[in-house]
Design a protein around this nucleic acid. Structure first.
Length: 471
RNA sequence: GGCCGGGUAGCAAAGUGGUAAUGCACGGGACUGCAAAUCCUGCAUCGUCGGUUCGAUUCCGACCCCGGCCUCCA
């Protein structure tokens, strides 16, 4: 097995060789908890969830450590709390709960550690002190700033030169900065703002510091993979890297940097001003809470490419999931088998820089073979293979019956659905069967049409009539 | 202006120096009372122009579009 991942720093696919195969470590930037998670936040969650699943499969479940932080101190949080007239703690607690619920709906496994910035203030202060001591940072007007020219290969991750940065700078440079590119490690807090006592007065950490500190604390100063959205490459990850490398000797920080592409919605960049800020919850409501459809849509495009999220695409993904679940249902495979060795081809597709679109196409191939399988023995084998392969992508984790019949995790009434009870549906089906028996096909079709109008589709099989919800 | 990524069938999206996976949609056929589901089958010369090559969609160059980053952002 050879895993290859595109490393942002080198700009090419590299063979993945973990520092310690018995302790593969990855750090992914998690949410800043000031508002509901949107569909753009969902992409790294899903992409790195697949990476986590792959690494667990390849190196063993107990040999992978996945850390995803929660940023719970930040100027946006302060602003949002103020706007809501709500204590910061309440805002962040509420938002974290919603975040967990949202991504659970996307079948994302929880990370092994989910550290919070506010629980690492002491370590942050210590790292700032180290940077000052090593002459990589300086104290000026209650701020502590990282002095960018002090680091020789600053810009190596984002492939920018210092000259470019200055040329492109559109911000007014604060007067206390020695160099325009210098960035804040610690900044003063106003009395009404959250703050912690420090050698430089009451204040709070700069944006990048938390990830340097939390990755070191939970993964060590050198670890394997650092992931996040492409927009984090600069300045966040560049600065994180600068802090972490300059604060220590002989460490490598992240060996592989992986970044997912951006998400647009209906062809437009998501932004609050455009009013197309689509939350995960809203998106899932469009498919009655079937998170796997959203997941399939996300994974249907390679993670480094831009992804345009559309309602049509989501509905199509739902139809595609129907196909896979139909194959399982027709195979009589109601068992959800979460374990077992995933099919080699699927694993190999993922080994090659997470080629999820190829992996998914292999699932369709398996579904086709399953549909054509002549006997129960082969069906069982293929169903199991399809299951384990799909599970690697976080798909097909439900019973087919549940997939087709439930309205999952949403308030049906709020969606304007009548959500017929299964008993009532069965009753109609019995009436229709009687009509068919009597060759009264117009009555049979009338019942079928009536159910269809309620979103219930019928399928006649040799074993009898079955139904599924159409949306 | 600098950096990065895209442009493949109606839509979505893989991939390869030797005439292009897969899904959805659509057409034909089988099956069905009719459907649905399923199966079989049809549907693209890969942004433009040059170059390298026996041969390029795949390599090189130029150009044209599209998106992102350079300021908070997944």
């Amino acid at each position: 097995m050879t895993l290859r991942f595109f490393n942002t720093k080198s700009g090419v696919k590299e063979e993945f060789k973990p520092l310690d195969p018995t302790n593969v470590r990855m750090y992914v930037c998690g949410p800043t908890v000031y508002d509901r998670a949107h569909i753009g936040n969902a992409r790294p969650v899903i992409v790195f969830d697949v990476l986590y699943r792959l690494l667990r499969q390849r190196f063993g479940e107990d040999h992978v450590l996945y850390v995803r932080n929660i940023t719970d101190v930040d100027d946006k949080i302060i602003a949002a709390a103020h706007a809501n007239d709500e204590p910061i703690d309440e805002l962040t607690a509420r938002t974290i709960i919603a975040f967990h619920r949202d991504i659970a709906g996307l079948n994302a496994l929880p990370p092994d550690v989910e550290p919070r910035a506010t629980q690492h203030i002491a370590e942050m202060i210590a790292m700032v002190s180290d940077l000052i001591q090593r002459n990589f940072a300086y104290h000026a007007e209650d701020h502590v700033l990282f002095h960018v020219p002090a680091m020789s290969d600053y810009g190596a991750l984002s492939h920018r030169s210092l000259d470019n940065l200055i040329a492109g700078a559109r911000v007014e440079v604060a007067p206390y900065k020695k160099h325009p590119a210098d960035f804040v490690l610690w900044k003063p807090s106003q009395p009404e703002e959250p703050g912690w006592k420090s050698p430089w007065g009451r204040g709070r950490p700069g944006w990048h510091l938390e990830c340097s500190v939390m990755s070191e604390k939970h993964l060590g100063a050198s670890f394997d993979i650092h992931g996040g959205g492409q927009d984090l490459i600069f300045p966040h990850h560049e600065n994180e890297r600068a802090q972490s490398l300059c604060a220590r000797d002989g460490t490598s920080f992240a060996k592989y940097w992986m970044h997912n592409g951006f998400v647009t919605v209906e062809g437009e960049k998501m932004s609050k001003s455009l009013g197309n800020f689509l939350t995960i919850e809203e998106a899932l409501n469009h498919v009655q809470g079937r998170g796997e459809a959203a997941r399939l849509l996300m994974l249907g495009t390679h993670y480094r490419k831009p992804l345009d999220w559309t309602l049509a695409g989501l509905r199509e993904a739902k139809a595609s999931m129907d196909r896979l679940y139909t194959a399982l249902r027709d195979a009589g495979s109601e068992e959800v088998d979460e374990h077992g060795e995933a099919p080699t081809e699927v694993l190999e597709a993922l080994d090659d820089d997470l080629n999820t679109p190829l992996a998914i196409s292999l699932l369709y191939d398996l579904a086709k073979s399953l549909n054509k399988a002549p006997n129960g023995r082969q069906k069982n084998r293929l169903a199991h293979t399809l299951h384990t392969g799909a599970n690697l992508l976080g798909l097909l984790e439900q019973r087919p019956g549940k997939w087709f019949e439930d309205i999952i995790a949403v308030d049906a009434a709020r969606l304007g659905l009548t959500a017929l009870e299964p008993e009532i549906i069965d009753d109609f089906i019995a009436q229709r069967d009687a009509a068919r028996e009597a060759k009264n096909f117009s009555e049979a079709d009338r019942i079928r049409d009536a159910l269809a109008a309620q979103g219930i589709l019928l399928e006649d099989t040799p074993e009898g009539t079955r139904w599924k919800r159409s949306c």
